[in-house]
Amino acid sequence: MIRTERQLYIFQKDWTGNGERGIRDQMLMPAIFFGAVSPGLFLSSVIFDYIPGLWLSITLNFVGYGLTHLLYLGRMERFWRGLANIRTSWISRGLLFNILFSITSLLYTLSATFTIPVLNVSGVNTTLKIAGIISAILFAAYPGFMLSFVKAIPFWRSLLEPALFFLQAIMAGTAIHILSFAFTKSGYGNTDILTGINFILMLTVLLLIMTALVMKSLHGEAERVSVRHLTIGGLSTYFLGGALFAGLVVPIFALSLIFAFGLDLQRFEILLYSLMVFELTGVYLCKYSIIRAGVYTPALKSRISI
């Protein structure tokens, strides 16, 4: 039966690349990852007025997301054509959101960092901030929409997807925010509250993923195939081991202990940073496995022979 299933359910391979173009084929995952981290960090930094975070977000956006994404394209010199179909295409929209985010986040960051006459007018500043927040949210959520609108792959098809992508983005944003304290101590005082938010986000994300898994495995055969692939199949190491256990359960557990015993976070700096690295790796593996687990419904299911 397993063999039969393998023949019937074809996994999506176009986005995982066959490696013919070498490293360029592998660039989509980093792009998606940084496409979450960057706006997440932006939001977190805006809230906490964390200037280094803003700059890091911009770097991650331009290099981590933009450059990798360009490299991933078959014809990167034509990337601008991608704006042509905003009416229906989530890639177009994503590109638009990214451009908006890039502009607003850059301008806002500039205004927050330097005194630039035009930008530092209060109305402009607020507008930039709000526009930055909105475009960050859209940008963070768009890959989720991109997946959830793929009719062909039932596992991706639900509004949990954008929610998950969005929450994961802020979660990863706060995580990298905390992690950045390893290099700079500015804003360090927010560690506790940031960790608290991060903790809640992790719990929510875990809950969301569990709900999604249960719902999916109850839903249809193709979804079940995807779920099986994630939990007991070829992706279980990445997903169960990496994304869920190392990336969520371990940090949640460790932080719960710290919170439960009322311990001082500052004394467990190394542990905290390690947990954040775990968490970020988890986010990466989570996205990676979800994209890999996308399976098409069989072209034709006969059962009672057709």
Binding site: D14, R21, R78, A152
Partner: peptide
């Protein structure tokens, strides 16, 4: 002449009808 090679179309096609020419092989 217009395609930028993002492969979204290939992913969304329910019939796996599209193939990407990655390199000149």
């Amino acid at each position: 002449d217009e395609c930028m090679g993002c492969r979204y179309c290939a992913v969304v096609c329910p019939y796996q009808a599209r193939t990407f020419i990655a390199v000149d092989r």
